[in-house]
Design a protein around this nucleic acid. Structure first.
Lengths: 246, 246
DNA sequence: TAAATAATGTGTAAAATTTACACATTATTG
DNA sequence: CAATAATGTGTAAATTTTACACATTATTTA
């Protein structure tokens, strides 16, 4: 989870008073965060949704979100939503962007800052199994409450792009995974099929997978080797790639 | 400028009332937009800054921003700031993300949604020449008011990445430009030097530059050919590139 | 326990792309 | 008219990407 560093400011009291007065004159709007929480199960990309609690959107799915509290960091608010709903810590979370169409909420203007999260569905149990919280296949998601479908679409596009350039995808898998699982993940998210030999060769050449010398268990066929992603090495060797292509 | 399409909702009045009541119970915060407006001049990437009007930040530069008005689209607010300050229409503008650290403004919490804009410095004259509005070299920008330095840094990183994958850069150049100007632009933004022959070959192979059969004027050396970017062709042939690399 | 199954694991040749690199040409300037 | 400062261009080597097939292995089923 990224944090911005903010310079500590030391100022004269009267200067602060002016600034406070200025901000006091600003109009204000309600602010929320919404989390697009992706998971991967049965070779399908899923997103965590809940039945809307608003009558206007009865039977429609909505994203998990909440208001941002006073003096709460945006990132922290998103993280709080995530934790409350999934019970998980240390989950990948990144801001995508803000959505602020004046009519996006039927109750009046609400700005929402959207976060995308990736987690391993099997590493947690949803806190509330009965309250209509569920994993929905992203590909078959239709209408949603508010502008949440547009938000999911934006996050899905974000993910498709992001997963090709950064090692995010591993957050959706168990810590130990086989190359087949990894390939299935990429194929599902990108919506393409990839050549198995070339896919493996690609990851082999990156040299960022640790062969942990274990095999898959309980698969109904020849078990594959298990790997971990070498985050440490990746962090050290992050390359700044230069190339023009559009 | 991108717009989100929002479904038109038709609902029972009592449902709306519930929603209105709900939103009425939300805490609210002041909301602004800030524009990181990039220009390119004398082979340097510049950003449009203004002396802060807050005493606490006396002599520090700040970005151009404003509050978001009631029922104003975020994009529109950013566009309004841009137009008020530069007098220009049809300028490239894209949201980068929201910044919301509780202490980012000394006057109290203010959320800002940050936009990045690219324009041709020579296509406009700043509306107000005297009010300390000026183009500052991005590379030498030091301290700024608020968290604006962090915002500029984020936008600069955004631009560096973006310019390699999308034809944004042309917004910083005159409509007709030489290959040298284009290369200088890439070199300045990416902070690298590129091989001239390979650079030209790259753009030639994309086949997205229109040779308009004109030459540079008033250059103190052999003039180069002028080109336009073929936006029409680009839009038709946008490729969805698949490749894993990190 | 043997055969069928369903996946793993691996290599090579061709094609495409990227990189490195140098010299003749042409307007302008002095 | 000579000097300058940039334009414009091609090729060979290296690297990366792509296309493609078969032997192996654990499990399941007959």
């Amino acid at each position: 989870m990224k944090k911005n560093t903010i310079p500590v400011l030391v100022h004269e009291p009267h200067m602060i008073k002016d600034a406070v007065k200025l901000v006091g004159s600003y109009p204000t709007v309600p602010l929320t965060v919404d989390c697009v929480i992706f998971g991967f199960e049965e070779n399908e990309l899923k997103v965590l949704v809940i039945k809307s609690d608003l009558d206007v959107f009865r039977d429609k799915f909505s994203l998990l979100g909440d208001i941002v509290k006073d003096n709460e960091e945006l990132d922290d608010a998103a993280y709080r939503v995530l934790k409350e709903r999934t019970g998980m810590n240390d989950v990948f979370l990144d801001q995508v962007r803000a959505f602020g169409h004046p009519n996006r909420h039927p109750g009046g203007r609400v700005i929402t800052v959207v976060y995308c999260s990736l987690l391993n569905i099997n590493h947690h149990e949803l806190k509330i199994h009965d309250n209509e919280l569920n994993w929905h296949n992203v590909a078959t998601l239709k209408e949603m409450a508010f502008d949440h479908k547009a938000i999911v679409d934006a996050c899905y596009a974000w993910l498709q792009k992001r997963i090709q350039e950064h090692p995010l995808g591993f957050n959706l898998l168990p810590e130990k995974f086989s190359l087949r699982e990894l390939q299935n993940l990429y194929e599902a998210i990108l919506g393409v099929s990839l050549d198995r030999r070339n896919f493996r060769k690609k990851f082999a050449s990156m040299d960022l997978l640790i062969d942990i010398d274990e095999m898959e268990q309980d698969v109904p066929h020849r078990p594959g080797k298990l790997y971990k992603f070498n985050y440490e090495k990746y962090e050290k060797s992050k390359k700044k790639w230069i190339g023009i292509d559009f």
